[in-house]
């Protein structure tokens, strides 16, 4: 039982990070109907920004950690907006395949730029937040895990508020439901798309910093696997569905952790993806996704 709970704690904390990244995929898909494969590099840049800020703030401090987190989120938000402006906006109206290939191109470009400027050698991640381990009746919870869960929850609540209660959030939902109608009520589509990229990228950066706190070594290709898994999580929850992405991320993190703790740990990635295939066989639209008939 302790073993089970311990794995659950580890799984939830990993899943929370997947959830943060998955939200960016799903929101961008919602408004533009394509997968932004450069999202995993936004995650990586977020982790690196946190690293560089970490060099200038005191370690093991709450304020320093939050500053690094906020700085990383701001930098990645700008990066996401710039990527959309320069790479995707000129292709608005082009076939989705063209945009997808561009996204892969942007992803590789960012990876290589990061290698060029920051080198390919993995760097140890600074301990941004106060570090401690809590023993709760045999279950060991690290303060970093607590940070992950608390920060993720706070960000999810903030996101929920933005999407459901603010004008720009309602405009995001309107745009994802019907871009033409959104334009006809006077929504500036470009502004809402930029906002969506900024928001998703900020969440990915938070995911990047939190990931690096728990797996404390970063390098320019660190985004690839978590990015791919978060994409899987987004599809699992129902691509375009915001609560779905959070649920998918959480689920994937828990599954991966449990497999990792079993005798099949070598196959953890294979099993995680097998679960995805199985779920999609039975629920092709994802767990919370729904196929809607597009009315003409």
């Amino acid at each position: 039982m302790t073993e089970f709970l311990q794995q659950l704690v580890n799984g939830v904390s990993l899943g929370a990070i997947f959830a943060l990244i998955a939200l960016g995929y799903t929101m961008v898909y919602g408004v533009l109907r394509f997968i932004n494969f450069a999202h995993s590099e936004v995650f990586m840049v977020g982790a690196f920004t946190g690293y560089f800020i970490g060099q200038h703030v005191p370690a093991h401090s709450m304020s320093g950690g939050l500053l690094a987190l906020a700085g990383a989120m701001a930098a990645s938000a700008v990066l996401g907006i710039v990527i959309e402006r320069l790479a995707y906006r000129p292709l608005r109206g082009a076939p989705t395949l063209n945009v997808l290939i561009t996204a892969i191109g942007v992803s590789l470009l960012l990876q290589n730029l990061a290698q060029y400027f920051w080198g390919a050698t993995p760097r140890p991640y600074p301990e941004l937040f106060p570090a401690a381990n809590y023993n709760l009746g045999g279950i060991v919870v690290s303060s970093n895990q607590v940070t992950v869960v608390v920060v993720t929850l706070a960000l999810l609540l903030a996101l929920r508020f933005i999407v459901l209660r603010t004008k720009i959030g309602t405009a995001m939902r309107a745009l994802s439901l019907n871009p033409k109608a959104a334009a006809l009520v006077g929504i500036n589509i470009d502004v809402v798309i930029s906002f969506t990229f900024g928001l998703g990228s900020a969440l990915a950066a938070a995911g990047g910093v939190l990931y690096a706190l728990n797996y404390p070594s970063i390098d320019p290709i660190m985004g690839t696997l978590p990015g791919l898994k978060a994409f899987v999580a987004a599809v699992l929850g129902g691509i375009g569905n915001i609560p779905g992405a959070a649920l998918g991320g959480l689920l994937l993190g828990v599954i991966e952790t449990f497999v990792n703790g079993s005798e099949w740990s070598t196959y953890k990635d294979a099993i995680a993806f097998a679960v995805l295939i199985l779920i999609l066989l039975f629920r092709p639209a994802g767990l919370l996704g729904r196929f809607t008939v597009e009315k003409v």
Partner: peptide, 23 residues
Amino acid sequence: HVPEGRMIFSNLTVDENLAMGAY
């Protein structure tokens, strides 16, 4: 322009649809 096929935002409430009209 009230487009053909109405194009209301089907998952948004009536209230939210009107709010978007006043965007």
